[in-house]
Design a protein around this nucleic acid. Structure first.
Lengths: 336, 336
DNA sequence: CTATTTTGCGCAATCGTTTGCGCTTTTACT
DNA sequence: AGTAAAAGCGCAAACGATTGCGCAAAATAG
């Protein structure tokens, strides 16, 4: 089983490479190749167990049927779930996926994009880190690019993201409706768009209900367990304890829980908890945590659909100015 | 920014495509291209912002610098962690990764492998589902293949896996040393090699200590929450309750916990728990769960190293008969 | 039985790079 | 000055597939 090419089959059958190519790519009828020729060539190809060389195919057709996916950290369940959805979507459509993990580094991201361009991918889906869409906008001029999960403010790049503002608002209002008044939000990286939007939702909801005595405070600066732990410790040992904490991510939540338990406080009696992002484990914590669930499936599907549409409609240049925010939903636990 | 090729640069500079190619691939000195020529061409290339076409490069050189990774379910934290490790390892070595999620289907796996062969990947790392290594062994004749996490019994395929027998033995002995005597193991898919090995370890440890009154029983048939729940319910409501349960996976464990809690039983007073596979969340459950941790990092590194060595040593045909089992370790929680 | 159409297929260029070989022009040496 | 060696670069053939164009043979028409 060395190397089987069209040339091999051509020699074996006596037909030209062109004919073999047309037959094996299913263009036989279109080029009026005789049915018996088609059958014959097909048969020989199978017996050789011929495998088409997709590299050569790509070079010639200028299509690789490959999509590049770039995420900040595939080890994060949030992104691995998202990746799983996207990978499967694309497989169903006949595309294969190149995956890069940037580890939240913009340098890695730029490098990954360049690699993808070099590899002539048909499209790129990226969860951008950093705040400089410039180079992505350049690329988007020649290759379809779609942002997911995070986006930029003044950009023409298409994106599909969660409506984090709504999520933040929703969670906060839920706490308020449950009777909590002294709210604390523990946020992640402040410059990141999802974080800012969640915060905006939190602040807006709190001030919309300031008349009923709702007071708010914010803390934190990273999507990490340590951050949640540290801020919670500080707040709960201060003179003015919050009665409810809104963790902006699951990692932050874990830190919050750790601190709360170490302090011997009960959830939700002493302090209520609500969190952002869903995870199966949250149902098994004690108590199960109420959280905002991002519509990952919808995001993955829309992103996939649109990028494929962009690829296939490429009448010379790429157009696709759609920017979509999808409302998340709330999953109730017993932590409020 | 249309398309910049060697030809473009060749025309712009007046030098031949060959010269441009040699310069831009760093072979300038080797072919004694004048330094000023090198500088000039390099400069022009940058100003055009030339991007090499890796497809053409691959076609010519017969190397794609691409590795195919096949996992059964990227949404499973176990595999996403493993994938993250492998992806990063390969990135550091200059390879890009194609990722496929087979969703535990052998059909998908075969298809994925074929796609990879077609795409001329330089190597394949696969967590195989199913029990028919045949087609993989064929492939391995022409492309380096390494199995991870799961392997086949009578195969020449190289693999790097956890020593699941040791893990099973270790967990069981731990329970016994803690004083538990009525042990139950809830297993996953019975035909899968890791499951069988864990079971073998469990049974062996139990019978090695049968003199001290250790009794064993087994149940279950799938790596799912439902399975853990169902079997635990059955066992704990039977006349003969186990005093310790060994869950063969995190998912099974979650089911076990669910049942235990619903029955109002305490961990570890009423029943002790130990589980296979590590996960950050296990420390936040109440109580933190004692578990066997698989050496994912080591597995990822060895697999990467060896496949790269196989690729680079390819003096015509692939050789690499190494089959490695790595001992897992035990992380203590408070569930025993 | 000739003229036209249809059928069935092959030629050769092309995609963008790499690379073995060889051709000029310098430079060095005696 | 004459010759040999070295420096600097280009030709053209790959890699394996696709595809516009066109040619011969067979079928149909007239």
């Amino acid at each position: 089983m060395k190397k089987d090419t069209l040339l091999t089959i051509s020699e074996r059958t006596g037909y030209s490479v062109s004919t073999v190519s047309r037959v094996l790519s299913g263009q036989g009828p279109k080029y009026r190749i005789a049915q018996k020729t088609i059958d014959y060539i097909t048969e020989v190809a199978r017996s050789c167990n011929y495998t088409p060389n997709l590299i050569a195919h790509s070079l010639r057709t200028n299509r690789t049927n490959t999509i590049g996916l770039i995420v900040p950290n595939i080890d994060n369940p949030f992104f691995s779930t998202l990746a799983a959805i996207i990978i499967n979507q694309f497989k169903m459509r006949g595309y294969t996926l190149l995956l890069t993990d940037t580890m939240e580094s913009e340098t890695n991201e730029v490098q990954a994009v360049n690699t993808y361009v070099s590899r002539q991918v048909d499209g790129i889906i990226v969860v951008p880190v950093g705040n400089s869409p410039g180079y992505l906008e350049d690329i988007a001029g020649s290759i379809p690019v779609v942002l997911i999960d995070r986006y930029f403010e003044d950009t023409t790049l298409p994106y599909v993201c969660t409506d984090n503002y709504s999520g933040g608002y929703m969670a906060t209002e839920y706490l308020i409706n449950k009777g909590y008044r002294k709210l604390m939000a523990v946020q992640g990286v402040r410059t990141s768009m999802p974080n800012r939007e969640r915060m905006r939702g939190f602040l807006q909801a709190a001030s919309d209900h300031s008349a009923s005595g709702v007071r708010k405070r914010t803390a934190g600066d990273s999507f990490s367990v340590e951050n949640g732990y540290k801020e919670t410790m500080a707040a709960m040992t201060s003179g003015d304890r919050p009665d409810a904490i809104f963790a902006f991510s699951t990692t932050i939540l874990l830190g919050v829980i750790k601190a709360v338990k170490e302090l011997g406080l009960r959830i939700p009696e002493d302090v209520a908890l609500i969190s952002f992002d869903n995870n199966r484990f949250l149902d098994y914590l004690d108590p199960a945590i109420t959280r905002i669930e991002q519509p990952l499936h919808t995001i993955g599907e829309i992103a996939t659909d649109s990028i494929i549409r962009m690829i296939e409609s490429e009448d010379g240049h790429v157009s696709g100015q759609f920017q979509i925010l999808i409302r998340p939903s709330l999953i109730e636990g017993r932590s409020c």
